[in-house]
């Protein structure tokens, strides 16, 4: 069966069309088009032309990124400086002008750098067709079964102090390369102590996930050498990373703590 592309004016209509039977949603297409080219995706492919999906809005501390916002748009936006190192290292320039925020939430391992950062930022996904909002964490968990639904936008509070956000991507090819692993951390401090630590790993499992053991070690502590050492020790706890062409599961587990330590030292 060949591919049939349906074009819808809004995401809500695409969501309704999606409910009528098997279909694949086409975001920027940097993942989906590969599968179409390879003949892996057949049947219905849905795309949406609504320019509203590409909107970036900031009100107060809340940032809202439409699902169709590209990595290039994020990397070029003055008020999104904390995300520049994240968006700016996803593929080369020709990938970034197409790769979207929405697509990154569903990009298979080892992809999902932006989703990793969103997870650490505690972002929520605004679901299509008035489906309310859900934590990005839930979307990443449910995506495996294809039960996550279409995402219209993501929202998160911009950290008041940019220095509380940290990003560390490990790749073999510079300046552009896919993650061996990636780490995003948000470590707000009150009176020198970490309150509400959120640390997420990318490329350490089927989808980006929070490092609960690391968060537990950091919570309530000051970011000193002893705390950093303890966090590094438990870095890979709870993760069962895949083996692929970039790295073995063993290697990823071995180096997770090393890279976490480097990131935390930078943030201290």
């Amino acid at each position: 069966m060949a591919v049939t592309v349906e074009t819808h004016p809004t995401l809500t209509e695409a969501a309704q069309a999606m409910a009528r039977g098997d279909a694949v949603y086409l975001g920027g297409g940097t993942g989906v088009m590969r599968l179409i080219n390879a003949g892996v995706i057949r049947g219905r492919v849905l795309r949406v032309t609504d320019p509203g999906l590409r909107e970036i809005s900031l009100s107060g501390e809340t940032v809202r990124l439409g699902a169709g916002v590209t990595m290039a748009a994020v990397a070029g936006h003055r008020d999104l400086a904390i995300l520049h190192p994240v968006a700016g290292t996803i593929g080369g320039p020709a990938i970034r002008v197409m790769a979207t925020v929405g697509g990154n939430l569903f990009a298979p391992h080892p992809y999902g750098d932006f989703a990793t950062a969103l997870l650490a930022l505690g972002a929520r996904a605004v679901m299509a067709g008035g489906g309310g909002t859900r934590p990005v964490e839930e979307v990443l968990r449910d995506r495996a079964g294809g039960r996550a639904g279409l995402v219209a936008a993501v929202e998160f509070a911009r950290p008041r102090d940019a220095r509380t956000f940290g990003w560390h991507k490990v790749s073999r090819v510079k300046p552009k390369g896919v993650s061996v692993l990636a780490i995003a951390a948000v470590l707000p401090r009150e009176g020198g102590r970490i309150r509400g630590a959120r640390v997420a790993f990318g490329a350490m499992g089927p989808a980006p996930a929070r490092a609960a053991a690391v968060e537990r070690v950091l919570e309530g502590q000051s970011l000193d050498a002893a705390t950093i050492a303890r966090a590094a020790e438990v870095a890979a706890e709870g993760f069962d990373p895949p083996t692929d062409a970039l790295a073995s599961a063993w290697y990823r587990r071995e180096v997770a703590g090393v890279h976490l330590r480097r990131l935390l030292e930078e943030m201290a």
Partner: peptide
């Protein structure tokens, strides 16, 4: 004016 990978872009787009 922006570089794109033509293999990843749908012709109709």
């Amino acid at each position: 004016g922006e570089p794109h990978l033509a293999c990843l872009m749908l012709a109709e787009a």
